[in-house]
Amino acid sequence: MQSAAATAPQRTARRGWRRRARHAGRPAAVLLAVVAALVLGGGGAAWAWWTVGSTLPTVAAAAAAVPPPTGTFGCTPRSNGGGLLAYNSSLDLTWGAATTTPTRYLVHVVGSDGTVLDVDAGTALTLNLVNTDLDPSATTTYTVTVVAQKAYTSVTWSSTALTQTVKATRKTFIIFPYYEMSCA
């Protein structure tokens, strides 16, 4: 018959038994919680998703391109028809039509004297440079490009360009200056 007050070894033994019991119950509690989670999860973990993939045959895509003016520039100095004072005061540039009719041909001129000129040539295939208000004050070299442009609903696409260099050479007849156009 034990005394009402347990001995020190007895108290130690009881505490140790309680501790062991708590530790033994912990894994069981964890297992129970896992099972409950699986059940409450609607059994989703119990359904395996099989996924497969299949690729449609690849389709190549390419954007269109605006056809450029064809061939090379024709460059023809034009005489002013002034007899002894005749000189090539203007110059015709010609180019070939793009394979599909563009909205317009756009001519861009940049001169060594700083001249910048843009001309909407429409669908014309010839351009007389002097008639486009070139006004050289000295011998000047000009770089001329022409592109075909196609206008769409919201944007305009430009083709690659044809390029030609022309020169206006300053000359003097007695005291009167004049310029001769030539294809450089």
Binding site: T51, G53, S54, A60, A62, A64, A65
Partner: peptide, 13 residues
């Protein structure tokens, strides 16, 4: 202009 692309559609089931 003239830019290419390849359309590849991978369908999952």
């Amino acid at each position: 202009q003239s830019t290419p692309a390849s359309i590849a559609i991978v369908v999952q089931a």
